[in-house]
């Protein structure tokens, strides 16, 4: 909660400490992405939904580690932030992994409607309001 964590390891010096994820495992956050910090295809909004494709479902049995976990988790649409939290991976690392899976057609990312607009449109706002009121 609210504490400041470590800096990402790809500063100019490249000498930040390895991350401790609380589960007893120590790994440099971007080691599993071969050092890449930008996802293929640009930044992902944290609320964008991710779902595996049919091809992703077929690739699951032979996928490894984080890729396998993502394919397992995304049978139903799940937000990028949820994937990150459930995998206990930094959001940036998650975005890079998802970018690869998208490029291979193993997952689809559904961008939120507001990602391309400056404001959420009125029709959607009213649906959200109606949804909240009927809870």
């Amino acid at each position: 909660m609210n504490q400041i964590g470590i800096e990402p390891p790809l500063g100019p010096k490249g000498s930040s400490p390895a991350e401790h994820d609380g589960a007893g495992r120590r790994v440099r956050p971007y080691a599993i992405t071969s050092g890449r910090t930008r996802p293929l295809g640009g930044d992902l909004p944290v609320e964008a939904l991710v779902q595996r494709t049919a091809m992703g479902g077929r690739a699951l049995p032979t996928a490894h580690l984080e890729r396998r976990r993502i394919l397992e988790l995304t049978a139903e649409p799940l937000a990028v932030a949820e994937v990150s939290a459930l995998l206990r991976l930094h959001l940036g690392v998650t975005a890079v992994l998802l970018g690869d899976l998208v490029a291979e057609d193993l997952v689809i990312v559904y961008l939120p409607p507001a990602a391309s607009a400056s404001r959420v449109d009125l029709v959607l706002l009213e649906r959200v309001l109606q949804g909240l009121r009927s809870l």
Binding site: V46, E47, A48, L49, Q51, A79, Y110, L124
Partner: peptide
């Protein structure tokens, strides 16, 4: 090659 999109439309995500 792109696979067919799952038939059920995914929910629209919004955030506060």
């Amino acid at each position: 090659m792109t696979e067919a999109v799952p038939t059920l439309a995914p929910p629209i995500p919004v955030k506060i």
